[in-house]
Every structure is written in structure tokens, then in C-alpha cells.
Amino acid sequence: MSLKDFFKGLFGKESKEPRICKKCNEEIKYSDLKANHIICPNCNAYMRMNAFERLEAICDDETFSPIDEELTSKNILNFPEYDEKLEKAKKATGLNEAVVCGTCNIEGKKTAIFVMDSAFMMASMGSVVGEKLTRLFEKATAEKLPVVGFVTSGGARMQEGIISLMQMAKVSGAVKRHSDSGLLYIPVLTDPTTGGITASFGMLGDIIIAEPNALIGFAGARVIEQTTGEKLPKGFQRAEFLLEHGFIDAIVERKDLKDTLSNLLAIHTIA
């Protein structure tokens, strides 16, 4: 299935509008952004990519095939304002949930892929995100496929309470079974990756890649400052900080991501 069919033109319509760079506040024409990998041409800030843009940048043409796209969240705890938030997120993104899962080819190599979209409730993980990821890893295990995942998330989804928290263990279990089968998993950590996602599948890759300057951490920076009264060091919880402390393998620029992933997939291909 082609991406455009999959998204039924929702992004096509939305994405042509100019966007404002949050760093320099400049309004950027979409065509200029697109030509520059959704990086601000004015100040070089990495702006957040939506699921469509990410898949388009990584998957070979016409190779992406979605899995479990029909799954949608229910308000299991009858949590206040959750139904409204879900509706709003669906409308804004054209997605049913915060993660898109499927298979694709990357430079001809068949791969299971997931892409989280921060425009959907900060890509927080509730039961559907957890279930879709678990099914993707289980499918990749059964079909002996590597998994490449574009990670961004505010953490476990408060609105589904303890069920969200348990998804951290559930997905981690599926990642382990995939790994125990001798298969490759590469998470690409993008801005922002925090809380329960850093504390589960975000940090469980064979090779962990991050985009430049992406915020990656467990506790929120403001919470740490308020709790400890300490001043946070410059660059705290940025990708470069994690690289320096030994928690990620490499920082890769957006323009080089597909080539790097393709190369790593080739190196890990079992002869």
C-alpha cells in the first residue's frame, strides 16, 4: 500500500501549510521545510516530524504496509476529558493512535517499523500503543524481521492508569523474545523521549540511535530542578549528554538516517 492511500490525503492537505519553528519563531514555507528534512532552514532546529513524513523519509516507495491500524483506545477508567482528548488527537493527526506500525523495505531490506507521533497526545503509551508495539515485535519474531522504531513519547498515558504502566513490562517482554531469537532492534530516539518510554523499549535496542539535540530522559527536568533545588547543567538530557554518559550508540543527522539504518541492517543480515 502506498503511504498516500494509507493516510487518505489527511497529511497531504494539512502538511502543505507553513509551520512556525519553536526555536526561532520564524514561519517556514512547507516546501522549504520538506526540502530540508523538516529542519528549520533559518536556525537549523530539528522540528518534529509527523508519522507520515517519517515513513516517507525512511521507507522505500510503495513498500509500507500498516498493521493493526484499526485499533483505537477506549476510556477504560472512565477518566475525565479522555474521550475528548482522543477525538481531538485523531482529528489533528488523522491517526487512530499515537503509534503507526507496519512493515516496509529500507533500501530493499524488509523491516518491521514503528513510528510514534507526538502530535497524538504527546505519543503517550496507553493499552493500544502497548498492544500494537507488542504485536509488531511478536510478528517480527515470527517472521524473523528486524525492527526499526522511531521513538518519541511523554511516557505512560496517565488516562489509562495502571494499565498504561503495565504496557512497559508487556512491550519489554516482547522486545526480549524478539532479541532472544537473534533479531536486530534499533530504536531511533527523537525529541522528546521521556518517562516510561525511556524506562522501557526506548533503551532496549541492540543499537540505540538518537537525533541531534533530542531531549531524552526519565524524570522531567523541571521536576528535578524543583525537587533537588540544583541548577541543571547545560545540555542536560540532550542526545549529546546521553552519548557522553555512554547510554546511546550514536547521534545521526536526519539526512543520513536512512543510509545509516540501511547499512546497519545490511551488517546484521544473517547470511
Binding site: A199, S200, M203, I216, A219, F247
Partner: peptide
């Protein structure tokens, strides 16, 4: 690596 420790 608080996040990494919990994930592990």
C-alpha cells in the same frame, strides 16, 4: 541512566 536501569 535511571531510565536505562529500569528498562533493563
Amino acid at each position: 541512566g535511571q531510565g536505562e536501569a529500569i528498562a533493563e
